[in-house]
Design a protein around this nucleic acid. Structure first.
Length: 778
DNA sequence: AGCTGTGGCAGGGAGG
DNA sequence: CCTCCCTGCCAC
């Protein structure tokens, strides 16, 4: 494997510089003395003790502005070398006999990392946990789940209550072992000591749990502190080190307690599930039970208990609770089995430990690969460039309505292909590491995919698939890194170059489709939905057409047939529905289907779209009548009426923003505040609108679904009828006004008559998205 | 010891 | 009414 991806020595990611080597560093701090640090476009090498000599750059400056930049910290921490070296030798010797051989070879090595924390050094230095050449199945993984008595969902809010304690610890591993530490007739402290004894005996490489960093581990640490027990999790019997951190997926940022354990890795399957859904975006929740069902790995006859009944079961029905806890760890094991393989294989090429690979984002990974090579080459690191990216993907819609048949053709790996064929790299990358890594990863992925197809064994195929998918995620992040404002090697000019080249390619692809007689419906970034020439379709014909398209593109850019569909409902840019030849319905876009919509709205829209795609106008009208009826009757489930929203801000930030007029009051936050619970970032809140006012202020009329009382139903029927009509309005453009009115209204005057009603196709011009309806030709 | 990007639509509240 | 601004969610 290319040394850029495998690390520069096979046994260790840690390589350290000796101060005597400073003359070989490009650029050492003495070279820039007399120049303001702010004016220097790169980070020079220097000793911490010397940093005060650089004008405009003090230790305080370092701590405050660069402290968060771990990579830079490694570069300038040379003065800590002797202490670190001794510490390293100590932990290695305590771990295994070959340590001295390893540390001796270390002195020969050049710099890459100086990791100041002994636990991390130990973790990375133990060859066993580096995973070099290991298969995922060789890893010894232990699953852990605790059940607690009287613990509210708000976690720590009343953890000082004497009744709040751990009652069960369920454990399992991937070698078929299962164990339950039962809190009956034993103290909590004895349970914890038993846990640490078991950990020492089983000696797992990895400790896994669902939300283990959000709940189980911080909770155990807290109880240990209260009880005066040492949380001996480490391979050397040491206690974990913990820190507050954040995990961000897309626009969400979820706080968690980071935990580092000497010689072991921690995997939170909740993070794996969230990362998975960041790409798939079709999960309803990230809870263990839902996720297990979603992936089809929930054990048959699994025991379910609702969270607030745990204490009751402990008091009245312990057997059921024990079964439940055991099923939790089994599901955790299966989830990790399904999701963690790709991170495992990435760890073999990144200077990060397994847990950190899962916790950190793609930009960090790319930057670390760059950093490793730069420091090894003794080349100074650039500072982030100023300015921002200004362009993105090309998106447009040309036809609105129900269209058939449909082909979706997309450019394979558009942005990476552009970066490779146009040789795009950051201006600051003087060593050309960025394009080399990108090319190497791309080649590696192709090779892995080829091997995957040849592999006969299913286990081997899964292994290779996990590897290639991890490469794909990383490859696709290279473009994003260029535009990342805090990236050391960012380059917004090149980022714009990538997107504008992409736009040009898509426009040229559209022209080719039109020249060949096809009709373009919608374009988004790297793919086009279109009707083939003369509406003729078959797999062979479509494939030939797309091949023609592909041949018309520049070298290095290839177009693939991504999908064939019986019909498409085109609504807006990034909003459409597809009906496959297997009758499978896919709905895309937040305007059509969104998790923040009321559940009845989602199912109403889904049913309407089904009817529209089937041309079933009576069905469409009946769907409206049904929902109209159940809202008026009050026979609709309150959970169907409720909106579920995520609180992306903490209480303090929200109140401050409202106070300063930066944002308006919002129903979800007000409900959370009203419930008296802790308003936690990332928390989900379900609420409904009460009262009679058809135009209520939602932040005043909102109530938590838990407050709804079946004896005194107070949901706002007028408001929900209005919501039903708002959902219907999405379909307004598909009909003549009088037809629209007759479909989406109750039969109070005349019964609905579908005869003569037609679904319209509208031409959308890019200049104005509002144009007149034109009856479609049939 | 956190952090890849732009583009589009909907909904709510405030104020003209 | 309308416009502006903000957040949330989503496609790629």
């Amino acid at each position: 494997m290319n040394p850029l991806l495998s690390g520069h020595n096979s046994d260790s990611h840690i390589v350290a510089a000796h101060p005597a080597d400073e003359k070989n560093m490009r650029v050492y701090f003495r070279d820039i003395q007399g120049i303001r640090f702010e004016d220097v476009p790169f980070y020079p090498f220097f000793h911490l003790s010397d940093s005060r000599l650089i004008e405009g750059f003090t230790r305080k400056h370092w701590a405050k502005e660069l402290g968060g930049n771990a990579f830079y910290k490694y570069l300038c921490a040379f003065e800590e070398w002797p202490a670190m070296w001794d510490g390293l030798r100590h932990v290695l010797e305590s771990y295994n006999a070959t340590a001295s051989a390893k540390t001796d070879s270390l002195t020969q090595l050049e710099v890459v990392h100086i990791l100041t924390d002994p636990a991390t050094q130990y973790l990375l230095q133990s060859g066993r946990t580096l995973f070099k050449g290991m298969a995922f199945d060789d890893l010894h993984r232990l699953q852990l789940d605790i059940e607690t008595y009287n613990t509210p969902s708000s976690q720590f809010s009343d953890s000082r209550r004497s009744s709040d304690r751990i009652i069960l610890i369920a454990l399992s591993d991937n070698r078929g072992w299962e164990h339950l530490i039962d809190g009956s007739g034993t103290t909590e402290k004895e349970m914890l000591l038993e846990l640490f004894r078991i950990l020492k005996e089983k000696d797992p490489d990895v400790i896994e749990g669902h939300n283990i960093l959000g709940f189980d581990l911080p909770y155990i640490l807290k109880r240990c502190k209260n009880l005066g027990a040492i949380p001996a999790f480490g391979r050397d019997g040491s206690a974990p080190r913990s820190f507050d951190s954040r995990f961000s997926v897309a626009e969400r940022s979820i706080p968690y307690t980071g935990v580092e354990i000497a010689g072991r890795h921690i995997v939170d399957t909740l993070m794996l599930v969230q990362s998975y859904d960041m790409i798939k975006r079709n999960m309803e929740s990230y809870g263990l039970k839902y996720a297990a069902k979603y992936f089809g790995i929930a054990p048959a006859n699994r025991t379910y208990i609702s969270g607030n009944r745990i204490s009751w079961h402990w008091d009245n029905d312990r057997k059921t609770l024990m079964d439940y806890a055991m099923d939790d760890v089994r599901e955790t094991r299966a989830l990790s089995e399904r999701l963690s393989g790709s991170s495992f294989y990435l760890t073999q090429m990144l200077p990060l430990n397994y847990g950190a690979v899962i916790r950190s984002g793609s930009a960090s990974k790319i930057e670390l690969l760059m950093t490793r090579e730069y420091v090894r080459s003794k080349e100074s690191m650039p500072k982030p460039g100023e300015g921002i990216q200004t362009s993105g993907g090309y998106t447009d819609v040309f036809l609105r309505g129900v269209l058939e048949p449909i082909i979706h053709a997309d450019v394979e790996s558009l942005y990476p292909s552009i970066m490779i064929t146009e040789a795009i790299k950051p201006a600051s990358d003087v060593l050309d590491v960025f394009p080399q890594i990108l090319k190497e990863l791309t080649q590696l992925r192709l090779d892995t995919k080829r091997h995957m197809k040849l592999a006969g064994d299913a286990t081997e195929r899964n292994r290779l698939d996990a590897m290639q998918s991890s490469f794909k995620i990383l490859i696709n992040s290279f473009y994003g890194y260029l535009g990342y404002r805090k990236g050391l090697f960012n380059d917004h000019v090149r980022a714009d170059q990538v997107t504008s080249t992409g736009q040009d390619l898509l426009r040229s692809m559209m022209r080719t489709i039109q020249t060949l007689g096809g009709t373009v419906v919608e374009v988004d970034t790297d793919g086009i939905f279109f009707i083939p020439p003369r509406g003729e379709t078959s797999r062979e014909v479509d494939e030939r057409f797309v091949q023609q398209l592909s041949d018309s593109m520049p070298a290095g850019i290839s177009v693939a047939l991504d999908g064939r569909y019986r019909k498409m409902l085109s609504y807006r840019m990034k909003n459409y529905a597809l009906l496959g030849y297997d009758e499978h319905l896919t709905i895309k876009g937040s305007a059509l289907i969104s998790r923040s919509m009321e559940r009845f709205g989602r199912s109403y829209i889904k049913q309407c779209i089904t009817c529209l795609l089937d041309g079933d106008l009576d069905g469409l009208h009946n769907t409206y009548l049904h929902f109209h009826h159940v809202i008026i009757e009050g026979s609709i489930d309150i959970l169907d009426l409720a909106k579920t929203e995520t609180l992306n801000e903490g209480l303090h930030e929200y109140l401050q923003a409202v106070e300063s007029g930066k944002r308006n009051r919002s129903a979800a936050y007000e409900v959370a505040i009203g419930m008296g619970g802790v308003v936690k970032q990332g928390m989900k809140v379900s609420y409904y609108i009460s009262g009679n006012d058809p135009n209520p202020k939602s932040f005043e009329s909102c109530k938590s679904v838990d407050e709804w009382n079946p004896s005194f139903p107070d949901q706002n029927k007028a408001y929900y009828l209005k919501r039903l009509n708002e959902f219907s309005e999405k379909f307004m453009d598909f009909f003549k006004p009088q037809d629209y009115r007759s479909i989406f209204s109750p039969d109070d005057l005349f019964p609905f008559e579908s005869h003569g009603v037609r679904i319209l196709t509208t031409t959308v011009t890019s200049a104005s998205s509002l144009s007149q309806g034109i009856p479609s030709e049939e």
